[in-house]
């Protein structure tokens, strides 16, 4: 799956949980889920579950703990689906 498509899917997953819309419209690989997009931490768990469903993968705890930005999540999804 192409990187652009993964980011597009990730963007659709996080959208309902985003509290900072201007950070969302400028979303990049560097965007942090917590400090930029201001996603409530309980919803970060929802993001992880949604990623598992969308990409049909299982995220282990040690991977989940790194998934605090778009780029970090992209890397983990890429490793898992390749």
């Amino acid at each position: 799956m192409k990187e652009d498509l993964i980011i597009q899917k990730l963007k659709a997953i996080v959208e309902p949980y985003v509290n900072n819309q201007s950070a969302f419209s400028n979303l990049s690989k560097e965007s942090s889920f917590i400090s930029d997009l201001e996603i409530n931490s309980a919803h970060l768990v929802d993001v992880i579950l949604d990623v598992e469903d969308e990409f049909d993968i299982r995220i282990e705890n040690e991977e989940m703990e790194q998934m605090t930005s778009v780029g970090a999540s992209l890397n983990i999804i890429q490793q898992k689906i390749s």
Binding site: S32, S41, A42, L44, V45, I48, M64, E65, M67, T68
Partner: peptide, 26 residues
């Protein structure tokens, strides 16, 4: 339980100046 974990996360992260992590299970 969730709320207590969040409190401890914030205190622990500041004390040791840690990068953000999503590790409530720790």
């Amino acid at each position: 339980i969730w709320s207590c974990k969040e409190v401890a996360y914030k205190a622990h992260q500041r004390k040791f100046n840690l990068k953000p992590r999503l590790n409530p299970f720790d």
